[in-house]
Amino acid sequence: MSNGGAAPPPSPHGAAKSLRPKKANTKLKRSSHIGNLYRVCRGKIEECPMQGKSPSGTKTGAGTIIINGKQGISDSLAEMNKRSDYFQQIEEDVDKHAKSVTELKTAVNTFNTKDMTKLLKFHKHLESILENLTDETQVLTRFEGFPTKKLEALRTAVGLYLKLESMITVLQNWKIEPPLAELLNKVDRYFNKV
């Protein structure tokens, strides 16, 4: 024992094992309890029995659901919508504003101009009608064939036009005075920002 009574160094195989981080024993495991709860809830929504006979007459095991299709879920959603104040307000809006939205649908479909002042005037008229709706998107979807894409295109065109008008106003209000190099740098920075 020339080491002075010290233990021999650990073997390379054992050292590699001890240097590795220990694996945490926290693997996620699939819980059958959560899956069963999901099936029970879905069965209640779809009004299906948890146990019983399948449509073919064969008995099913515990936790098995006989699904009658998606009719149960759609009926449940329709019932929730009927009770929701939000959806009741949307239905009231559909009834209350049906005439003006129908006229607006025709007006948007037939609107065609290259004159920006006419577009701005038409846009103002559109918004005066649509601002009265609780939820514009929900109400307009109740009117089959409403040209929502054209409506968005009109709004985009008005937005871009107004942005260009504001840029022109800014540029026209700049005073042209020396030093011109500084003014040109300022204009250049403004256009880069735009």
Rank of each mutant, 00 (worst) to 15 (best):
102 T>K: 06
177 E>A: 11
88 Q>K: 14
27 K>Y: 02
137 T>C: 02
67 I>K: 07
18 S>F: 04
181 A>N: 04
8 P>Q: 09
46 E>A: 06
185 N>A: 00
139 V>Y: 00
136 E>N: 13
178 P>G: 15
112 N>Q: 15
20 R>K: 15
145 G>Y: 04
186 K>P: 00
40 V>E: 13
59 K>N: 07
79 E>F: 08
58 T>A: 11
81 N>P: 00
73 I>N: 01
142 R>L: 02
63 G>P: 09
151 L>C: 03
63 G>M: 05
142 R>K: 15
149 K>N: 13
70 K>W: 05
29 K>C: 07
133 L>T: 08
155 R>N: 14
180 L>G: 12
88 Q>G: 03
105 K>I: 00
89 Q>G: 09
173 N>G: 12
89 Q>S: 11
161 Y>C: 05
121 K>V: 05
100 S>A: 03
81 N>I: 01
44 K>C: 08
189 R>G: 02
187 V>P: 00
136 E>G: 00
78 A>Q: 09
50 M>L: 10
84 S>K: 08
130 L>F: 01
16 A>M: 12
75 D>P: 03
160 L>P: 00
32 S>K: 13
64 T>H: 13
129 I>W: 03
27 K>N: 12
61 G>A: 06
189 R>V: 04
151 L>V: 01
96 K>C: 06
160 L>I: 04
44 K>N: 05
